[in-house]
Design a protein around this nucleic acid. Sequence first.
DNA 1: AATGAATGAGAATTCATTCAT
DNA 2: GATGAATGAATTCTCATTCAT
Lengths: 218, 218, 218, 218
Amino acid sequence: MKKLNERIAERKDNERQERLSRILTAARKVFFQKGYLNSTMRDIALKAALSPGLIYHYYEGKDALYGAICEEGFHALLTELHRAEITEGSVMDRLTAVGKAYVHFYENSPEYFDIISFRDLGYKKVELPHHIRQRLDKLSYQALDVIRRLIEAGIAEKAIPPDGDLWEMTMMVWAPIEGMLFIHKRGYMDTFGLDFEKILKNEFRLLLTAIKGESRAD
Amino acid sequence: MKKLNERIAERKDNERQERLSRILTAARKVFFQKGYLNSTMRDIALKAALSPGLIYHYYEGKDALYGAICEEGFHALLTELHRAEITEGSVMDRLTAVGKAYVHFYENSPEYFDIISFRDLGYKKVELPHHIRQRLDKLSYQALDVIRRLIEAGIAEKAIPPDGDLWEMTMMVWAPIEGMLFIHKRGYMDTFGLDFEKILKNEFRLLLTAIKGESRAD
Amino acid sequence: MKKLNERIAERKDNERQERLSRILTAARKVFFQKGYLNSTMRDIALKAALSPGLIYHYYEGKDALYGAICEEGFHALLTELHRAEITEGSVMDRLTAVGKAYVHFYENSPEYFDIISFRDLGYKKVELPHHIRQRLDKLSYQALDVIRRLIEAGIAEKAIPPDGDLWEMTMMVWAPIEGMLFIHKRGYMDTFGLDFEKILKNEFRLLLTAIKGESRAD
Amino acid sequence: MKKLNERIAERKDNERQERLSRILTAARKVFFQKGYLNSTMRDIALKAALSPGLIYHYYEGKDALYGAICEEGFHALLTELHRAEITEGSVMDRLTAVGKAYVHFYENSPEYFDIISFRDLGYKKVELPHHIRQRLDKLSYQALDVIRRLIEAGIAEKAIPPDGDLWEMTMMVWAPIEGMLFIHKRGYMDTFGLDFEKILKNEFRLLLTAIKGESRAD
DNA sequence: AATGAATGAGAATTCATTCAT
DNA sequence: GATGAATGAATTCTCATTCAT
């Protein structure tokens, strides 16, 4: 039988959770709509139907709140990548699935994509506090690790030749996709009337061929 | 023999140029160091040892000044790319040279690289005035066009198979490099102790092989 | 017996009122002394011993604050006019009383008079925001309406002949007084050593005679 | 036969006149269009195709320039009034003509009217330099003097009873017209759908009757 | 006389964060 | 915990006027 203070603690904890998610939801909406700079704590507090001061009980400040949204973004991405990772099929199929999942994420959660891609890059020099950066970097690492694991599995299955460093191969797989998304984001595809999907398909094919067939001289 | 007013005009023009470059130099330093948002016109004026108001005689405002720095960056890049484009050797050599020039620019002018890559991208929602954007977009196009021309030449020389749209091929060449630079910028290479140069070399080789050998199904 | 939060709410409300009036008092002093354009928010904040930012919690901005002072002026005027309107005596007596009240207001609250007379008139092209103008226009209308009501009453009592539009008659009553005040304001009375009070008395007499006796041809 | 330096002086004088009028024309246009506050010396210089600095050779500054435009306005008004003053007909006809001329000026030169009416009134507290004010006051006096002279003539002709001070009578004639224009300017006529011309006609009739018939007690 | 570059004070407003209640 | 009032630093851009040339 629970004691009274346990129950109280429990309720408090629930309330805390509720607050956290309420604030997060509000912050997400506001940041997505207006961008980091144009969002004010007041906007967020209003959207959350809370007082501005209270947010500081739950998050250190605007930066931290922004960091939390970044984190959300990473979790959303990781969920998609992990799902793709355990797809049925060969290692190559799973690698393709992971690539497609990334593209899917890019297309369907553009705000999250932007946020996690540019979290503190660019000409703004908006810098997240150090410990927040670290958490995000760790999450970022986990995303890459999905690809690394697959390549490792591919080597184990002898579907991929074992030459070269594992991380290096990871980067080489990731780079063209990232680059393509980056190019698309800048609008060049539209400018030149290119078919994004078709290019991506070709890119994937090229990539897989390269990975499989490659034998390097290093 | 020059007339008096010619000399005066000449001197005035010189002084104007001197001012322009003085302001630009100051702005460059400040923007590079602090980023767009954290730079103030006052900072720039101070660094240039000029009154803040005077800057407005030469540039419309902070945006325009920033735009001028972006433009500088593009010109620097274009100079490098154009030099590489006319390298001695086969089309493939020249393509490689252009890629290397881009990497060189990335490594040696990281601030310019950032500025032109993220000039109004991402989560910031700070947008340059339209007419400035247009100029920059045009410069950006000129950079891409270097690659396009080389691929076109490669096809003419039958070094590259003619399948696929020209711009599409351009993007496929560009994407992996861009992606790799992007990855490097985020620091993953250092994190995993990878050798940037080596990876790039492999990347280039892969790319060239892929371009040459490819025959697509579309 | 009051509950705790009632008391708290009450106190907060009092404090809010106190702030509002503190700001208003400061603004009034500053605006009266320096005029709208030469007054700065900083002046007002300083006079109110408040931080500049706080004023924006209570008023939208400088315009709104100025609008509030205009409103005060109208309320002061309306109070005087309404009091005069219900004077003992005939309609003509009351009309005279209203006119005198206006003159009294002009003489005793010259700053308010200026502010409401020139609230956005003339060569300045500084215009108050629309919704503020509307409120002021409504108040302005209420002042005129006092005269209109009296003329209406005069017609009902057959003290004033019913020819002519009611508003037209209102204007004809108002114009000479307004004109006289305007002339006085420009200093001509002093220039020519005239007796303002005497002239006004004559003006009123003339006006009343005209109103009573008139029979127009239109 | 003119000496050389006389000719030079003459030419210089002509050029000076030309400059003055060029500047004045530009200033008039700009002030009329944008109002005093929103006009900049640069605007005026540009419109005059002159350098800003040069204006200061001809006028002390912005205020003085504005004062010169006011003066122009007075001269325009005085011209109209003087023309009306010497109309054929009785004193009363001429008085009416002068009133109508004033209204005509109000309607056809609204910018001048505003400028001379509000030259340094209102909530802005923009104050003209003293010596400029004095000139303008003198011109203003000349306008009033036209009415005064007519009333004087009327008394001489026994068309107007001689009771009361001459200036006082002038004011009493002027006030209703001024007031009516002022009311019209504020837009009340339109608000209430009144016929400005008709009201003015009635006003004039009333005024003339009052002047003629009056016998005061003072 | 003429130029126009140079000055520099100035002003409204915003907003993350704090803290008394 | 919760409130929201209070803070106050910070920033871009304008413009009358001056003055070296």
